[in-house]
Simulated scan of single mutants.
Amino acid sequence: MAPIKPLKLPLAAAEVDRAAHLRSDEKYLSSAFSDGQVLIFFEEKFAVINDQVLFLKGSTLGAYQSQTDYFLGTKDSTAFFIRHLVAEVDNQFEYKTLRQIGAFLSARDIGLTVHAQGLANWHQKHPRCSICGGATNVVLGGAVRKCVDDQSEHYPRTDSAIIVLVKDIQDRILLGRQKVWPKHRFSTFAGFVEPGESFENCVVREVGEEAGVQVSEINYLGSQPWPFPASLMIAFEAITNTPQLARPDGDEIEEIRWFTRADMKAAIADKSLILPLEISVARQMIKAWYGTGADIDLVGEESWR
C-alpha cells in the first residue's frame, strides 16, 4: 500500500505576486487602479460572465476607493484589485459563488479569487477594534485595518484545520456523513486545530473523536486555502490498525462507511454516494487514493454540504 504523493490542490494556485512592498504606496495604488483589472464582489459572490470571473478596468469604475478597493498584487505589469460592494449598485452583473465557478477558473484566477474572498470576508466581519471596540479604517491596500482611537493594527485571520484520509491495512478508506449534509453525501474527516495543538496531534484527536479509530503513519499531503470563510486546510493521510472500532460519534458524524475502490465505483453508479466538490481537498484526496480512472468512475453528483 503505497502512500499518496503530495497533492496539487485546486485552490492552492498562486501565479500573482502579492507585491506587499506596494501596499503602503497610496500614489501607486491610486494610479494602478485606473489601469488595473478589478473583480467585483458582493454578498459572498463574484460578478461573472459564462462562469468566469469578470474583470473590469478600474477607470470604468471611477477613482480608487481605499476603504472598499483591496489590492491583490501584480502579474506581467498588470495590477489586480477587488471592489467590495456593501450594497449592490445595480443588477447589470450576474453573481456566482466561488464554489459554483471554482472548477472552471484558470490558476491565475483561482489565486486571485481565493485571496479576494478571504480579504472581503474578513473586512465584512471585523469592522471594529478587538481591543477597544472603536471603529477601524482599511489601510495598506486592504491588508490591514487600523483603529481610529488607539492606533492598533489588525490583520486578517486564518483558521488552521486538518483534513485526513483514513485508510486501513487493506487500503480501504473510511468516510463519514455529517447530520447537516444531504442524504448519501460522505467525505473525509476534518477539524480545527486547537490552541497549543500540533497538526499531527489534531489528526489523531479528530479521527478518534469523530470515527473512533486510532491512527498512525501520518503523512502530509499538502494544503490549500478554503475561504468559506477563513480556513487553511492542511491535508494528511493516516493508517488505522483498529478498523473494527470505527463508529460515528453520533453528534457531528451520524454515519460512516468503509470503501474499497470497487465499492466506491458501484456507489457512484447507483447514486448512493455523493462526493465533495471537485475544488475541495477531500475530493482530491479521494481521487488520488482511487488512482487510474478516477476522473471517469467518480463522476456523479457532488455537494459542498
Rank of each mutant, 00 (worst) to 15 (best):
L175Y: 07
G141N: 05
D171L: 13
Y155N: 13
G176E: 07
Q151V: 05
I162A: 12
K179Y: 10
P127S: 11
R177W: 03
T188N: 15
G191D: 03
R185Y: 10
D171S: 14
A143L: 04
T136P: 01
A161C: 08
V166C: 06
D149A: 12
P127E: 14
S160I: 01
T158F: 06
K183Y: 08
A135G: 02
V138T: 15
L140P: 01
G176M: 08
C132N: 15
I169A: 06
W181V: 00
P156M: 04
D159H: 14
R177Y: 02
A143T: 02
D171V: 12
A135S: 09
P182S: 04
L175N: 01
A143G: 05
T158N: 14
C129N: 12
F186D: 00
I131Q: 15
K167L: 10
C132Y: 11
I131L: 14
G134Y: 02
D149L: 07
L140C: 10
D168N: 14
R172E: 06
T158A: 08
K146S: 08
S160H: 09
N137R: 15
V180F: 13
V144N: 05
R128Q: 11
P182Q: 07
V144R: 08
A161T: 09
I131A: 14
H154Q: 12
V139Q: 11
Q151I: 04
T136F: 04
L140W: 09
T136K: 11
I163V: 13
F189N: 00
A190E: 04
V166I: 14
I169E: 07
R177T: 01
H154W: 04
P156C: 04
S160P: 06
G142K: 01
L175T: 05
V164F: 06
F189M: 05
Q170H: 11
S187L: 06
T136S: 12
P127I: 02
H154Y: 10
A135D: 13
R185H: 15
C129P: 00
K179N: 11
R177F: 03
C129Q: 08
I173S: 00
Q178A: 10
E153D: 07
G191K: 04
G133K: 08
I169W: 04
D171W: 14
D168W: 15
W181A: 05
V138L: 02
P127C: 02
R157S: 15
N137L: 13
R185G: 02
I131M: 15
S152I: 02
F186C: 03
A143Y: 02
G142Y: 03
R172M: 07
R185I: 00
A190P: 00
A190L: 01
V164P: 00
N137F: 07
S187T: 06
W181K: 10
R145Y: 03
L165G: 01
S152N: 14
R177H: 10
W181C: 06
P156V: 00
I162N: 12
S187E: 06
F186V: 01
K146L: 02
V193Y: 04
D168R: 14
I162Q: 14
G191E: 02
A135F: 09
T158I: 13
